[in-house]
Nucleic acid binder design. Sequence first.
RNA 1: GCUCUCUUAGGUUCAAUUGGUUAGACUACCCGGCUUUUACCCGGGGGGUAUUGGUUCGAGUCCAAUAGGGAGCACCA
Length: 505
Amino acid sequence: MSRQLSEQEQIRRDNLQAIIDLGLSPYPSPSFPINANAKDIKANFTPEKPEGYQEVILAGRLMSRRIMGKASFAELMDSTGRIQIYVSRDDICPDEDKTLYNTVFKKLLDLGDFIGIKGFAFFTKMGELTIHVKELTLLSKSLRPLPVVKTDAEGQVHDAVSDPELRYRQRYVDLVINPDVRNVFRQRTQIYTTMRNFLNERGYLEVETPILQPLYGGAAARPFKTHHNTLDMTLYLRIANELYLKRLIVGGYEGVYEFSKDFRNEGMSRFHNPEFTQIELYVAYKDYEWMMSMTEELMEKIAMDLYGTTEVQVGENLINFKRPWKRYTMYEAIEHFTGTDISNMTEEQMFAFAKSIHVEVDKSMGRGKIIDEIFGEKCESHLIQPTFITDYPVEMSPLAKKHRSKEGLVERFEAICNGKEICNGFSELNDPIDQRARFEEQLELGKRGDDEAMVLDEDFLRALEYGMPPTVGIGIGMDRLSMIMTNQPSIQDVLFFPQMKPEAT
RNA sequence: GCUCUCUUAGGUUCAAUUGGUUAGACUACCCGGCUUUUACCCGGGGGGUAUUGGUUCGAGUCCAAUAGGGAGCACCA
């Protein structure tokens, strides 16, 4: 239970006790009536028109302090940013008792403490906008030292915390000291807001479906397994919500969507976290051509809402989400990047071709899998600007409707951007007899040892048998999309609390 | 799961020559000085090699194992 306190932590605890001994509360209860924030004051205060800034009340963390005898400068950070404050002894201690300044402010406050101030805005001789403090209140004591990050006059950041382990394990610290990180997560929320508004305006219904499922389905992945005590049954954490949303289309809604936290018991990497979020959207009486157009419009809107332009800098690449995007069928993409048209090849010819261009294939792979391998190896990473790839092999897509005219293919698309898939959609298979046959093929794969093969969902088939209108669906990986839209290299940078191994104790 | 790589003041960012005195610097922290400073400044002070073992006269440095992080491969979104 007891932990060896560092020197700095011990000093802060001593300061805490000293504050209590002075009769002050280090953690007071009453509301503190803020009427201003740092950003607004910086944006709008001018000495010529000081109205409205003569009695501002701010609260936030004390982030730096420069004490010069009876006067001091310090920085206060609220949720909008930092602002300098000027604290002079005789202003905050007009009477004989100078304890608040000499003892509390100078000695007992520490960097990171929350304080509240009341005062007026002015510019110092050095031209720095500052709040002249008339009243000072301690709002909450900080018992651990924060890293001190400083920015100099040229805007250079010094001593920025760069250790990813500390940033991810103690995200609260990362957020306190790195304003850019706070902004990334604001942007992530902005993306959600844009999508909700966009979809709600079109009349689609945001819904919630089970996370704990008796059967997992809707994707090819290994699930997390858990157990319900009262029912004494195995439950799975969902790997997708697709089959539930389609049941709702059967039920009569014509457009439903859900931001779905999904769980897949697989490897972790820069692009994979065991729990992740995707939005799935299903719209009745539409097809995949329609959904591609809607996706372009939505993505363009997301970029515009974030940056006011359709162009987004992602690493080395400037990506333009402006409509319309390039569209290739999968065969066209392969021909484009390898120079060979494989659309009429037999499985044997394809196998030989894959070998010839050094794509790893083995005899267990069927035609569809070979095509997928060639595409993944030779095409995907070259697609930087947003591009739709359409018409996938039927073997890879057990929930997608067969192509209206092309044998062996389904009406499916993926959007590729910055060399990575950002969404996946298709005209939904609504023929219950075909769907049953596809599930049975999956069961065969499962028997052959494919631990990601889908399981047969009788209840879902029953729903389809009642009839589902022609429907198109899409899933968009929200974490991946956030990475691109906020220019972050790792999924851990767009998740507040990425999964980590436990800390050593 | 496999390969490579990293871990230095118990807040951070970085040094330390082929293995060679008592492991340094800035900031933070503590003490002192200063009423418009600004990465404030000036003077003084305490605190460290992830863990465990090995090689060596001598290890932050070389080797091994463990823990954690990062990158890549495989699987996937």
